[in-house]
């Protein structure tokens, strides 16, 4: 039910991940820690550089804005002080967007942002850059046509409940701290609060349950932290298979 992932499949990059979910497909690659250009060098901490490449064409101001948001968030979860005077370069190439994405009529950079962030975290995990915590991100959409806010809706679901009143992106750290929030539209404080609570529930469900147990009755509910743990567990198993082999 969670996003499909392939880890460390690019051979020239230090770490990489491909993330496919709800029609979004993004390749993330990380090089680092590498040498930093003199003007970007920090004496006490590592420099993080994020490049977002759109599916078609070259980057625009919209991508610059996404890069700024990702940069701020990733810098807060990376132990940049343990690798000073280095550069961690993160490149996120969007491979495909879901069909009908442009017709949804909401800010398309917000619908893309949680997927970019999840890809970046996966790629950082694959590189084994020292991280203070993990981050998981989810999209919440509120529409007068839907009784409850929609959690990580697909493009078709969004089309069905048009017009969408507000759209929210939340990212939480492993310690349930709110790392990132981008909300757009028209909403009350209570609506925002409800959306935030739902997102927190999905992003960091208690108990470290496996992927199968995190699912709701109708199979819609996803558990992002459980999903990420599962991905890491499989990665570690793969790396440690020489030990368990007979």
């Amino acid at each position: 039910m969670g996003p499909e992932t392939i880890l460390s499949h690019l051979h020239r990059a230090d770490g990489s991940a491909t993330y496919t979910y709800n029609g979004y497909s993004i390749i993330g690659s990380v090089n680092g820690p590498i040498e930093v250009p003199r003007r970007d060098e920090h004496a006490e901490e590592a420099t993080i550089e994020v490049n977002v490449r759109p599916a078609v064409g070259v980057g625009s101001p919209k991508e610059r804005h996404l890069e700024t948001l990702l940069h701020n968030t990733l810098r807060s979860i990376t132990l940049i002080r343990s690798i000073p005077r280095t550069l961690v370069q993160i490149t996120l190439q969007i491979r495909s967007l879901p069909e009908g994405e442009a017709a949804v009529g909401v800010n398309s950079s917000l619908t893309l942002l949680p997927h970019l962030l999840n890809t970046a975290v996966l790629a950082l995990l694959s590189t084994s850059v020292p991280l203070a915590t993990i981050a998981t991100s989810v999209l919440v959409a509120v529409s007068p046509k839907a009784p409850t806010p929609l959690l990580s809706p697909t493009a078709t679901e969004l089309l069905r409940v048009k017009p969408i009143r507000s759209i929210h992106v939340f990212a939480f750290s492993g310690e349930r701290k709110l790392l990132l929030n981008e909300s757009d539209g028209a909403f009350s404080v209570n609506e925002w609060d409800e959306a935030c609570e739902m997102a927190e529930e999905v992003c960091c469900k208690e108990g470290g349950v496996g992927l199968g147990e995190g699912m709701d009755v109708d199979g819609q509910q996803i558990n992002m932290e459980g999903w990420l743990r599962d991905v890491v567990r499989r990665k570690v198993e793969l790396e440690q298979r020489w030990r368990t082999a007979d």
Binding site: N72, K177, L178, L179, A186
Partner: peptide, 29 residues
């Protein structure tokens, strides 16, 4: 936007760390 009597939130942007939580943001509203 408070122009329609009730206070309506039009946008929230928060990034860069996890110090401000849900309750803090409500104070910021």
């Amino acid at each position: 936007d408070g122009s329609q009597g009730k206070g309506l939130v039009r946008r929230v942007e928060k990034s860069g760390g996890g110090l401000v939580d849900r309750e803090n943001i409500k104070v910021l509203f």
